[in-house]
Design a protein around this nucleic acid. Structure first.
Length: 840
RNA sequence: GCCGAUGUGGUGGAAUGGUAGACACGCACGCCUUAAGAGCGUGUGGGAGCAAUCCCGUGUGGGUUCGAGUCCCACCUUCGGCACCA
């Protein structure tokens, strides 16, 4: 090979040139054909981007470039999700202020992202920890508060003893902190919540109308967890009735006891329950959620309370047990040992009654339920709930049973959700201060913003914690996060800002008296719940007075393609949808769904394992870009496998791709060389075939097969004999350059200008079209099968490919075939242009 | 337990029901070179055979079909999500 691609020189040159010519900076207000191409913005970690980020961001960039070559005004912004525990924890570790560390890490991120040659619009970036941005995060909080969707209540919440802050349910993975992996504890604190549960139905139902991978939709559906069941009321002697919630109401005849959660017992029956059971409940509350979750053995205590089964009129005992979880259902369950394995275990251990279902009150229902209820037919046999669920024949009985229970006034239909309200407060420093003010005087007078004003959306809220609370006036935003020395979390349930009088001392917006600011800060997921709205408006003249420009937003949103990791299925994506729906209801945006098309890319692995610092298998893209160049790196990343897979990064693989890059570069030097007249058809046919395959691959993010067909094309061109058909050859190389442009943007633009002698960038040049009719070659190979097994092949002129009698006759005449087909076949199958199958 | 995926050479991975393993990596041999590297060329699913060629092969077992990696039924593996969910 004579010529080698000099990546260092060429890539630096083009990155500077693109910047200067602003080819990735669309005219936001005048764009005719907008395409908003968004990659989930990273949090700028101290370690910088790893190869997995490069894989994902390149996948997004390739598509943006593809769209740009289709005449779209592609807007591809980038920014930093810079607030949050992750950044702060690292700052604490290295003993540096988060804001100081951030300056260094963002510079590094920008350098890395630029070195990959991505087509970002660097004139419109977003940094969530900048006051210009978080002023609007605080504004958003105020809107939610005024809508009645933000409220404050004392609650038992997830507490991470290492991060020393509370966490949202979504941020607890297997009982551990999503950020640091520490086992999460329960703690009772007064906290701000968002009423995302108000939007549960819409969040669920809208999923049907958006183009997301099934996997991610399923994850959201499960997380929302809508389930219809019945609330059934059990009268309690000398006390308030107990309501249980169940989806298996037809088993109520077998309910021989009730079990309540420790929380339930203390809240409702502390005066009537047995001392032993109360002690048990108190003790149970001290256990961590994880301890309760993982203990196999069920424990409990008889409360001494007696309830009545509303259907059988049987008096049954009420027990307390920590396997019943507060917040699931009503916190009380009916124990049906004949139908549920957990109830069976419990009943067995404590000697509770186990009764089989003997009869039903209505003969018709009796029959219907019985038909699906094997337990009733085989007394003494335990039927577990799983087995019962699988029986379709029981459905009709269940439906009738429900109608009967409701008619008798014993129960009502209740829908339960797994989704909980979004806990926003963080007792930390590095976040947007929650823009609320508490006035003790007003609180005493039962006054507060929500008691004096009508909320905008959530009308029938109970005013938990509303007294005394006022939002910071929008004119006074932002509430600036002060620079403080002692930003470390103290762990006493209050954030570091609570030690700073000059921060929290203020005056009441209502009465003018002394008041205090909220000292907790917002969850980082609030920062990222609306950032996509900000990008197109960053340079708008109105951005000092509005979070985003209405006209620009109407033009550019919702996001055309959102590219990101599936690990955000139930966190970021759910929050962003919720916030967008609220903004829609408040008429700030004209759409309900921010990401009508979300593509979930896979997670890159290295040596068969997930990349992680502890495994020591994190691939830093810098070394590879330095050694092989961004284009070779990009090509390799995209060639490893489909975007939704989990490709394994291997050094030998990128070396192979370097050979390809050099082969292409070498081939490009032959521009004007020409092609042998006898090879012209071959070249043209392969060219159109390649354009077709690449184009199709791009649309479905199968970049690996797109690159594979480009490789085939290059292999073909290398075999072609030189000659005097210059146009055909030059056309072939021109097409090759265009097809490579999204993957290898630097090399392509260099070739495009210096060798192919164009004076405009390749990246806004129109993507090549293919002509199906030109893909056809002079000849076509027909496979010959005998009884479905391949036995021979024949080559025939393409013109005869559809001619059945011609092809079959040729096939019968084939020597190898005659060995297998000795007499007339029973049947002959002919597939045009493909094969002939003789059945003998 | 429930939900969703997944399973193809030594490896990454290709295949609108129609020639399984495209394209690469790796490996082997050869050319070039004083040599190494780079580059170029040839071969490379398993088995039998000097060879032409034949047999077997897409997690397992059945089925549909002229023809199944692909469709249907049952099961297994691995990976993700949810979960003492009442």
């Amino acid at each position: 090979m004579k010529h080698k691609y000099n990546h260092k020189e060429i890539e630096a040159k083009w990155q500077a040139r693109w910047d200067k010519d602003r080819i990735y900076t669309p005219d936001i207000s005048a764009a005719k054909n907008p395409f908003y191409n968004l990659w989930m913005f990273p949090y700028p970690s101290a370690e910088g981007l790893h190869a997995g980020h490069a894989f994902a961001s390149t996948g997004s960039d390739v598509f943006g470039r593809f769209m740009r070559m289709h005449g779209h005004d592609v807007f591809q912004p980038i920014g930093y999700d810079s607030f949050g525990i992750h950044s702060e924890n690292y700052a604490i570790k290295v003993g540096e202020a988060p804001s100081v560390m951030l300056q260094r890490t963002t510079v590094n991120y920008e350098r890395q992202l630029r070195s990959l040659g991505h087509g970002y619009d660097w004139t419109r970036t977003v940094t969530t920890s900048h006051p210009d941005y978080y002023v609007w995060t605080q504004w958003l909080f105020v809107q939610l508060f005024k809508s009645g969707l933000a409220y404050r209540r004392e609650a038992s919440v997830n507490w991470c003893p290492s991060c020393k802050t509370v966490l949202a349910d979504e941020q607890v993975i297997d009982g551990k902190c999503e950020r640091c992996g520490t086992v999460v504890e329960k703690k009772s604190l007064a906290q701000w919540f968002f009423r995302i549960t108000d939007y549960a139905d819409r969040l669920l139902d809208n999923l049907d109308g958006i183009e997301w991978t099934e996997k991610v939709k399923q994850a959201q559906k499960q997380w929302i967890g809508r389930a219809e069941g019945l609330s059934i009321h059990f009268a309690v002697q000398n006390s308030t009735p107990i309501s249980v919630w169940t989806r298996y109401w037809e088993t109520i005849f077998g309910a021989t006891f009730l079990v309540v959660s420790p929380e339930y017992l203390i809240e409702h029956f502390s005066s009537v329950a047995s001392a032993e059971s109360l002690r048990y409940a108190q003790h149970a509350l001290e256990k961590t959620a994880d301890e309760r979750r993982t203990s196999k053995e069920k424990t409990g205590e008889d409360t001494g309370i007696r309830a009545t089964n509303p259907v059988t009129q049987e008096v049954i005992p009420v027990w307390v047990a920590d396997y019943v979880i507060e917040g699931v259902g009503t916190g009380a369950v009916m124990g049906v040992p004949s139908h549920d394995t957990r109830d069976f275990d419990f009943a067995k251990k404590y000697g509770l009654a186990l009764v089989q279902v003997i009869s039903y009150p209505d003969p018709e229902i009796n029959e219907a339920v019985k038909s699906g209820n094997r337990a009733s037919e085989q007394p003494g046999t335990l039927m577990n709930s799983g087995e019962f669920n699988g029986l379709d024949s029981a459905q009709e009985g269940k439906d009738q049973m429900r109608a009967w229970l409701i008619k008798q006034g014993l129960s009502e239909v209740t829908t339960h959700y797994h989704l909980r309200d979004w806990l926003i407060s963080r007792q930390r420093y590095w976040g947007a201060p929650i823009p609320m003010i508490y006035c003790e005087t007003c609180a005493k007078n039962e006054k507060g913003w929500l008691t004096e004003n009508e909320s905008l959306l959530h009308k029938n809220h109970d005013d938990w914690g509303a007294a005394g609370w006022y939002p910071v006036s929008e004119d006074d935003l932002p509430v600036l996060l002060p620079d403080v020395e002692d930003y470390k979390p103290k762990g006493d349930g209050r954030g570091p800002l609570a030690s700073h009088k000059d921060f929290y001392e203020t005056t009441c917006p209502a009465c003018g008296g002394a008041a205090t600011r909220e000292t907790d800060v917002c969850d980082t997921f609030l920062d990222s719940s609306w950032y996509f709205l900000r990008y197109p408006s960053t340079d708008s003249v109105t951005n000092k007075t509005e979070p985003f420009d209405a006209k620009v937003t109407k033009e550019w949103l919702p996001v055309n393609l959102y590219f990101g990791g599936a690990e955000h299925s139930v966190l970021h994506l759910m929050y962003a949808r919720f916030v967008t729906q609220v903004l829609f209801d408040l008429k700030h945006v004209p759409f309900e769904e921010p990401f009508p098309h979300f593509y979930a890319h896979g997670l890159m692995i290295k040596d068969g394992a997930k990349m992680s610092k502890s495994r020591g298998n994190v691939v830093n893209p810098d070394t590879y870009i330095d050694k092989f160049g961004a284009d070779t790196m990009r090509l390799y990343l995209m060639f490893m496998g489909p975007m939704d897979g989990s490709p394994d990064f291997r050094d030998t693989g990128i070396e192979g791709m370097e050979r390809f890059t050099n082969r292409v570069w070498d081939l490009m030097q032959t521009y004007d060389r020409g092609v042998h007249p006898e090879d012209v058809t071959k070249v043209i046919s392969k060219m159109h075939q390649t354009v077709k395959k690449v184009t199709e691959g791009m649309h479905v993010f199968h970049y690996n097969t797109a690159i594979a067909s480009i490789m085939e094309y290059v292999n073909t061109l290398k075999e072609v004999r030189p000659g005097d058909s210059t146009d055909a050859w030059n056309d072939a190389l021109k097409t090759l350059t265009l097809l490579l442009a999204p993957f290898a943007p630097h090399l392509s633009d260099e070739v495009w200008h210096t060798l192919l002698r164009n004076d405009h960038t390749v990246h806004t040049t129109t993507w090549p079209l293919f002509d199906e009719s030109l893909i056809v070659n002079d000849t076509v190979t027909i496979a010959i099968q005998v009884n479905g097994k391949l036995r021979s092949q024949i080559v025939i002129p393409s013109a005869e490919g559809l001619n059945e009698s011609f092809v079959v006759e040729k096939a019968r005449a084939d020597e190898a075939t005659q060995k297998w087909v000795t007499h007339d076949p029973k049947k002959t199958i002919f597939v045009p242009n493909k094969l002939v199958n003789f059945v003998i």
